[in-house]
Write a protein that binds this DNA or RNA. Structure first.
Lengths: 252, 252
DNA sequence: AACAAACCAGAGCACTGCTCTTGCTTTGCC
DNA sequence: GGCAAAGCAAGAGCAGTGCTCTGGTTTGTT
């Protein structure tokens, strides 16, 4: 249950493993190769035109195959999107985990800020992929269980910072937590290994949704006519907001 | 510039005005009537199947007209969505403004919390409409200027609470604001009539994105396996989070 | 009464996701 | 090596979409 407590998860299940589970036959090798090509060009189309107008036929056309051939490799459009979702979560997760590793373990505020900026940076670089995973889910689409692992990489990083912080300087005055709220967060408390008091856990979750709320607002245009458009201004504003969030976390 | 400073905007531009601008001829009357029918059934389809699968043909079918006839009343699918967006903003705005009027003007914390719960309540009651306005915008879609008025009703309510609060009990220690950040928020400062110090304004914006971040996370399933599913638990959790946000605002 | 603007119905184009059938190639097994 | 089974590509086809164009009708105005 506490598998993640190490400062940063060492696993890099983003990369396709090189030689394990050798695809013996030539056909199998071609299969994974073509599947990867499909995913790659699909990701290209997604980045260019957005998820809503991602077309299996267009992907097939780009690959020089007829549309029906796609269905040998991908059961349907939704599962293609699911694969892209998993890739997106892993791409974001890898970025976030990477920048966290460059800092001293006890530089909690810096680790938090660097995490926030990594999320924002990835979102600005991959807006359509961000929208795919943190925007409104396509109607009738229920996230399959394969996504929850990749999806929890960022929350895990945030939790790890909190746990590291809490382990080293205990005190900090805490806000009372209603019993109903306490039972509501049983799942995440278990996930965190019970290493955090409820109050701090809840602050962490507020920081979590505050972070993605800020990124989403910027990306979806809700800061139009509110915060100046330039990247300099936007970044400074975001930094300030995240420092505020960090203060609510007991950092800084 | 300070047109909104009154506790709650008195205008109710949600309702269609009854007798003004009389649609003299029978044809004109039929026109607005049919347009309204189109909007109504479109809203029904939206609520049921989501924005992505909203079909002009299906709407036409429901109204017993042939698909091409729709284009007499609506230029295209995007502008139908835009009309629904405006309606959604106004519906949410009206709800939020309404609940705020039931409270004493100096009950700042209560006004804030009631606003938050009104947003969440509306979102849970109209998930697809919420996704339409606060989810990922459809690709290639640029919000037309007609939406910015309705869209600013909720922010206006939040700002009004802050202004009322700041006018009556000044002090509160403030956090320093970098000059770059200060220039970044020139637009919103002007919009707020310059009645708030930058620090408080920034806290308000953090509360704003924190509120919608929390609602979006709940609605889009990011609390799955994190916060217990039941409405009781979810509401208690949300309430706690918003109280935390309020504390960051200097309330409570 | 005459005329132009607004309307409706239908056919049609180009596109989508997805299925099914027809042949062909590769694979694993005896 | 032979051979059935499985995997594959290609094409036709179905039902649906947004949107346009044409012809014919209704309506409001002069």
């Amino acid at each position: 249950m506490l598998w993640f407590v190490a400062t940063a998860p060492e696993m890099e299940h983003t990369q396709r493993m090189p030689a394990s589970n050798a695809p013996s036959t030539a056909r199998e090798r071609a299969r994974v190769e073509i599947t990867q090509e499909i995913l790659d060009t699909a990701r290209g189309h997604l980045a260019k035109d957005g998820a809503a107008s991602l077309s299996l036929r267009a992907v097939a056309r780009d690959l020089g195959m007829v549309s029906s051939a796609i269905y040998r490799y991908v059961p349907n459009r939704d599962s293609l999107l699911t694969m892209l979702i998993i890739e997106a979560y892993n791409s974001l997760g890898a970025d976030v985990e990477k920048v966290g590793r460059t800092l001293r373990r006890d530089a909690y505020l810096e680790r938090f800020l660097v995490t926030c900026h990594a999320v924002r940076g990835w979102a600005l670089a991959h807006p359509q992929e961000y929208a795919l995973i943190y925007g409104s889910p396509v109607p009738g689409y229920a996230a399959p269980t394969d996504t929850i692992g990749p999806a929890s990489r960022v929350p895990t990083v945030l939790l790890t910072i909190l746990i590291d912080m809490h382990r080293n300087d205990r005190p900090k005055k805490s806000m009372p937590v209603e019993p109903l709220v306490s039972t509501a967060i049983a799942d995440i408390r278990k996930f965190s290994g019970g290493l955090l008091p409820d109050d701090l856990l809840l602050r962490g979750m507020a920081a979590w949704s505050g972070l993605f709320g800020a990124v989403s607002f910027e990306l979806y245009g809700h800061l139009h006519n509110v915060v100046a458009e330039g990247p300099k201004h936007r970044k400074a504003y975001f930094d300030h907001q995240m420092r505020q969030v960090a203060a609510g976390l007991g950092l800084g």
